[in-house]
């Protein structure tokens, strides 16, 4: 019946590949699709948080800090609940990291505060005496790039259908508004002002009041969001 196939080695090889690939697909894809759904309550990043995430990537925080808590007692004692696949649903790309020179940050928003982050990023040894982390004073001066963050948010909204401007939990309210760049920037500035006031640094508050978001404020908003 299939002797014609045996006489055509190339098509036979293609046929074998298709059969094996199909078996792989039906085993892997449904589970993968299920596991990678957003967990209940997961929300996309707001504009300011996304800008902070870009600072996080730019400063290579993920070279020393992981964002993945493994299910071991020693880790959950220190960092909290182990990480789930669906928590990374809106991370593009995820920032698991591969090496912990510093501690894991996946739930750092649960146990650190804005003013702590500001103190720590300005001079790490002022709060953690033995720290080998370098100071990041320049991000207190640099202005966060809200335009690029907005472009990213708008892109994932259009291309991947990330639920910006949508009512996700059915309470009749939009959970993560994005809107036009002007609206989004206005909202990001309000949020940044709150964070800047929490850091208790006048220079940061002044910068935000002038309409410029310091990178540190965006970064803290992002870190506080990690829960």
């Amino acid at each position: 019946m299939f002797s014609w196939l045996e006489k055509n080695p190339f098509f036979f090889a293609v046929g074998v590949f298709v059969v094996i690939a199909f078996a792989g697909l039906i085993e892997i894809v449904p589970d993968f699709a299920q596991q990678s759904r957003p967990v209940v309550g997961a929300k996309p990043y707001s504009l300011l948080e996304l800008a902070g995430r870009q600072v996080y990537i730019k400063e290579s925080c993920n070279a020393c800090h992981s964002q993945l808590i493994r299910p071991f007692k020693s880790e959950t004692d220190r960092y909290g609940m182990y990480s789930l696949n669906g928590e990374y649903a809106y991370d593009r790309p995820f920032l698991w990291g591969s090496k912990r020179t510093g501690p894991d940050l996946h739930r750092v928003g649960n146990y650190r505060t804005s003013d702590w982050h500001a103190n720590h990023m300005w001079e790490p040894t002022s709060v953690v005496p033995g720290s080998i982390m370098p100071a990041y004073k320049h991000i207190f001066k640099n202005v966060a790039d809200l335009e690029t963050a907005y472009a990213e948010a708008l892109t994932v909204k259009k291309v991947f259908n990330v639920p910006y401007d949508k009512d996700m939990n059915g309470d009749g309210k939009i959970d993560v508004p994005l809107g036009s760049f002007k609206q989004a920037k206005q909202r990001a500035l309000q949020y940044a002002l709150k964070v800047a006031q929490e850091t208790k640094r006048k220079d940061l508050v002044d910068m935000v009041k002038q309409g410029k978001v310091p990178e540190i404020v965006a970064l803290i908003a992002y870190l506080n969001r990690l829960k």
Binding site: R112, T113, D115, W116, N119, S126, V127, V128, P129
Partner: peptide, 14 residues
């Protein structure tokens, strides 16, 4: 200790 300091004095008011 990251906030209250290793001696518990609150790291100079932080």
């Amino acid at each position: 200790s990251p906030c209250h300091g290793i001696d518990g004095t609150g790291i100079e008011g932080k």
